[in-house]
Amino acid sequence: MELKRRGFLTIAGLTLLGLTAKPGWDIFSKVELPEPSPTPERLAKKKWGMAVDLKKCWSLEKCKDCIDACHRIHNVPDLGTLKEEIKWIWPVPFEKVFPEHELEYSGEDYHQKPVMVFCNQCDDPPCVKYCPTRATWKRKDGIVMMDFHRCIGCRYCMAGCPYGSRSFNWRDPRPFIKKVHLEFPTRTKGVVEKCNFCEERLNRNLLPACVEACKEKALSFGDLKDPGSDVRRALYHRTIYQRLPELGTKPKVYYIL
């Protein structure tokens, strides 16, 4: 009796295990491949970058055309509080963006001047490492993408980003959007967002909205691999700053002074 029962239990157990194998396999085999599958070759050949000419930017005081353009087309809500603020591009005083450039004795007066900051689209983006679901990842052309469909809202990417480039939707943003731009989705509460280098516009051969909106032509955008591109020409033989280059994130947004 003893032996029989044991034998039966063993067989039953093994059968059960066998039955779970197929669905188990199905579940795991359905998982998408680790890296987003090869992007079109066109993308892989490019490496988008941006240059900000600070002197040109400062020539018009209190201009915020680039911010308005970006926030309008991306449906960035204006929540009116610092606590829940969402921003893709915003001004920060020079001395805070570049704390390593001490200006004490240089006689220059620009340490309080605003510097436009956005997501640096790092070449070695820290945020990507931390995301538990690959909701954020680096595309072949260097754009650090955000998939709002997949973000679970753990905010670990925000902890990972040393530039504070990421914002979180603390509440449903839709009531705070003045006029919804139809071609870009709004976001739900509970997901993280940031500048995407106007990936949806590049796709249609348009320049990023901020670059297009700047009357002073302070912003230049283009393919860093192409010596003839706007961004490369803007950077040529100039003094270039990057934000916190010592962290090894290799930002692709350059500041020219």
Partner: peptide, 29 residues
């Protein structure tokens, strides 16, 4: 407590479905 902290708790199983093992959060799981 981590699940309470999530912005989209309805998507919490994505951490398993789309598991990204470079993320220390997955090591925790």
């Amino acid at each position: 407590s981590v699940l309470i902290d999530l912005g989209r708790p309805d998507r919490m199983l994505y951490a398993i479905r789309y598991a990204h093992f470079r993320s220390p959060l997955l090591w925790d799981i």
